[in-house]
Simulated assay, not measured.
Amino acid sequence: MRKPLLMLVLAAALNGLTACASAPSADLGSAPGVKEGSTPSKGSTLIIKDFADRSITFPSAPQKIVALANGEMDIVYALGGTLVGRPTATVPAALQAAQSVEQVGSTHGLDLEKIALLSPDVVLGNHPLNTKDIPGVEGVGSKMVLTSANSIDDIKKQIGLFGQLLQKEDKAKELTQAIDQKLQELKTTPSTAKTRVLMVYGAPGTYMAALNNSLSGDILVSAGGENIAADYPKLDNYPQYAQVNTEKIMKSNPQLIVIMTHGSPEKVKDGFMKEMQQNAAWSSLDAVKNNHIEILPADLFGTNPGTKVVEALDLMSKRLQAAK
């Protein structure tokens, strides 16, 4: 029974490749959202523009939604929506309502057969990771909306765009205002010398320093910290990160070292510590002397936390204060 379905999906995808034309061009530089000049109301045609500057038309607000990442899933549920397909990943504690939803892969590899069976109105993917998947998704009769989250502003734009998509604009404003309020609170905190921080994204044997143009780097700076890796040269394949430079770390003397990872956190921390301890000056760092080397929650850092970015900012602020 699976083979005929696979052939049908593949044939539809091939049709999508040949029939898929470029979407109407949108003004470059304008914010993602409802296309200029359209004022959709419930039940009317909806035209939105995603982060890839693609104009996408829906006959009405989509009801059957698939999300390929936890951040997008969080935003949909925070807006009062639900999913028919979710990322193949551990569901954050705050999203247990989505636990039983069908898993369909991730932004790094979606399951087109499962998506075809669910027949969603829209699939929420990443720009640019899922650009290559547009023809396949459209070939099985669904639309794809691409967004990204490399900054807090990006998350706010995601919330606004999804609010327009689900026609939950008022709720979207409420959610973005909560983020703005938290940012304002952090700005009004009495200023003292900023805590020097090294943010490391790690997997066993691989470690990268987060730059300020990454989401985690933006959270750090917005919470009042100083990223010691801010001027490190970015990696070609991962422009939001840089190679960990032991000599520069020793020179900057961070007061706090935080580690982000998706799996085996203690193993990643131990591996990073062993690598750094090869330098004799490691034990003289303020962060090491004061035992301020911490693993950050995976659902808040190193990935898009969605509306929970407020919690990420709060947690980072507390860590910065404790390390002074």
Rank of each mutant, 00 (worst) to 15 (best):
E174V: 00
L165Q: 09
M208D: 12
L161F: 05
N150Y: 02
V145L: 14
Y232P: 13
G125K: 06
K173P: 04
N150G: 07
T206A: 11
G141S: 01
A223F: 07
L165Y: 05
V221C: 10
K194Q: 15
K182C: 05
G163E: 00
A172H: 13
S216Y: 00
V200C: 01
G160E: 12
L165D: 10
T189L: 14
L124C: 00
S214R: 11
Y232K: 11
P190M: 08
I159Y: 10
N130T: 12
G136M: 00
T206S: 12
I179T: 06
I179D: 02
K132W: 07
G125F: 09
G141T: 04
G139A: 13
S151A: 00
E174W: 03
E138D: 06
Q181G: 14
N227E: 00
E226G: 05
T176S: 07
T195H: 09
N126F: 10
L161N: 07
T192F: 06
M144L: 14
A203N: 09
K156R: 09
M208C: 03
H127V: 09
T195Y: 03
N213W: 08
S216N: 07
Q181D: 15
G217T: 03
Q164G: 10
L165R: 03
K187H: 04
E138T: 06
K173N: 11
N213C: 04
Y201P: 06
L211V: 09
T188V: 14
D154Y: 13
A172C: 03
P135S: 04
P120Q: 03
I134W: 01
M199E: 06
K194M: 05
L183C: 08
Q167F: 11
K132I: 13
K132E: 12
D121C: 11
D153K: 15
N213R: 00
P128W: 09
A149W: 12
L166R: 02
G125A: 05
A178F: 08
L166I: 01
S214L: 03
N126T: 10
Q158P: 02
Q181F: 13
L198Y: 11
S148E: 06
L183E: 15
A149D: 05
A172R: 09
D133K: 15
K187R: 06
K194W: 08
G160P: 12
K194A: 15
V137S: 07
L211A: 11
V221K: 15
S214V: 14
A178N: 04
P128M: 01
T206R: 09
V145Q: 12
D218L: 04
L166T: 09
V200T: 03
A193S: 08
D153A: 14
D121A: 09
N150K: 13
S148L: 13
K187E: 07
D133N: 12
Y207K: 01
L165H: 03
G205N: 11
Q177E: 14
A229N: 04
P233A: 00
M144E: 11
I179M: 00
S151N: 05
G141I: 04
K194E: 15
A223H: 00
L183T: 12
N126C: 13
A193V: 13
Q181Y: 10
S142D: 11
Y201L: 15
K132L: 11
L146N: 07
Q164M: 08
N227K: 05
I219C: 02
V123G: 13
